[in-house]
Amino acid sequence: MSAILELNGVSKAFGAVVVADDQSWTLDKGEAMGVIGPNGAGKTTMFNLVTGNLAADAGVIRLNGETISKWPAARRCRAGIARSFQVPQPFAHMTVFENAYVAATQGAGLSSVQADKLCLDVLERTGLLEKSNVKAGGLTLLERKRLELSRALCAKPSVLLLDEIAGGLTEHECHALIQTIKDVRETGVSIVWIEHVVHALLAVVDRLIVIDFGKKIAEGAPEAIMQSDAVREIYLGLDADA
């Protein structure tokens, strides 16, 4: 399999605080990769660097072999990178449908008729169809998270970046979400998923990377990573030697 997304030596610092430290990893076409790490480790920052919401200080980011490090966020989205925001960023005075429509017409570049069709289809899959005509500002937090996913999907991404969308869901909702993401993957979309709900993550991803203090400290098969000393140390506070 060939790489669709590639980070090589990507770094970012705000003054003395290093938020991304020489990060390198690749995502293969059709692959789903999970990202874990403690709060404040720099996971969302890494997404911001990939999507162009933040500019990297050093390093190269490639999409399908093309260097996109200097591209503005909008161009990266149109090239196929879509994300959901950890803290939802709805267009509050527009309806749920219109939120999705923006992504379909701008991010995916669809005509109005094509966009209508795609939006209805995606909203049905994410369970927001009944809320289509509701202003996004009136949604609950969980619905806003689903709107984040819907919008990202309407941009027709080749790489989908998901930032903590499973938190706070009931068992049943979580199961439905896992199924939705698996379905998305079936359509050939490559996925990077930051998630604290580890069992949801493990149900979908083929590979895990662990980030701490802006650095990638471990990478590998999910089961092996979860058993590794590095993860146990971070999550359980165990001394690696113990």
Binding site: T51, G52, N53, P72, A73, A74, R75, C77, R78, A82, R83, F85, Q89, P90, F91, A92, H93, M94, E98, N99, Y101, V102, A103, T105, Q106, G107, A108, G109, S112, A115, R151, A155
Partner: peptide, 24 residues
């Protein structure tokens, strides 16, 4: 128009608009 809907999106949230492919 599609461009106008994009403008309305910018009015509501520039961060999200940028990330959804709108050249602000």
């Amino acid at each position: 128009s599609r461009q106008g809907v994009a403008l309305t999106a910018i009015r509501d949230n520039e961060v999200a608009a940028r990330s959804l492919g709108i050249d602000i």
